[in-house]
Write a protein that binds this DNA or RNA. Sequence first.
DNA 1: GACAATTAGATTGTGCGCAATAAAGTTGCG
DNA 2: CGCAACTTTATTGCGCACAATCTAATTGTC
Lengths: 146, 146
Amino acid sequence: MAPQHPQLALDAQLCFPLYAATRAVTRTYADLLEPSGLTYPQYLTMLALWDAGSPVSVSALGARLRLDSGTLTPLLKRLEAAGRIVRRRDPADERRVLVSCTQEGWALREQVADVPLRLAGAMGLERDEAERLRADLGRLLAHLDG
Amino acid sequence: MAPQHPQLALDAQLCFPLYAATRAVTRTYADLLEPSGLTYPQYLTMLALWDAGSPVSVSALGARLRLDSGTLTPLLKRLEAAGRIVRRRDPADERRVLVSCTQEGWALREQVADVPLRLAGAMGLERDEAERLRADLGRLLAHLDG
DNA sequence: GACAATTAGATTGTGCGCAATAAAGTTGCG
DNA sequence: CGCAACTTTATTGCGCACAATCTAATTGTC
């Protein structure tokens, strides 16, 4: 149907499987995370917080997750309303807001500890295949985002 | 910082580079598509329409793009408001809505014909690397979405 | 010490993505 | 025919993403 522009065929695009696979993974996470009450971006945010060891500033969190404050602020407010985190101004620099896990936030870790393994199962990729995909995506990300 | 749960480290996840790379690709497309006035999902929708040869029902379009009507309907309304497509009820089955490209919609094709090549350049992947990534993502998608 | 430039977050507005529900049309079965 | 089950699309509500803009606090420079 696209004789003059074969490069515009949906199946020829890298972007489309990337886009569709991301949404499929998000849906799969939604099921696995449902008991914990976390959304997928909230789960990634908690991973980043656990990684960093709280407290962390909003901008540091945003740099790690590559999200800006317009996305993070309402997300963090929902996590705070749910009792998972606390936000407070940094006394040393009142422009900064420091985010810390609550005890309840740390406890979530135990609850989601099995999620990565269950996800890996649902994705149906061999270990080396998954590792290659992760490496390829990391390279792509590094090139696009600097 | 995560001694008891190394599998929860952000860098150990496949999901995070997938998530971040998708948003990075979306931002890159936003720049390339800006002159055409299309968003990235609108661009994919136009690709699917050109592929199929219009008219196509909303459900057929949704199956191809793996999007439901809650996402497609407002998106299609915006494309219609911009004069790129037309929506009308199928006379043979009044439940169905058929989507067709306008002349202006077909003309957009010429305007975005160079986008895939320019995108490939921005992504900085070798041809075989990109092809491998596409195949891996396709396999992942097939497994998750059936 | 004053003041411009910079930095950190918050706010606003637009556009997805999807679950849940509603509304309208079609089909199948007695 | 009559009507329940099903299919298809639209609507509603919530949660991201992100650009643009705003406010407040800090830093550098003289």
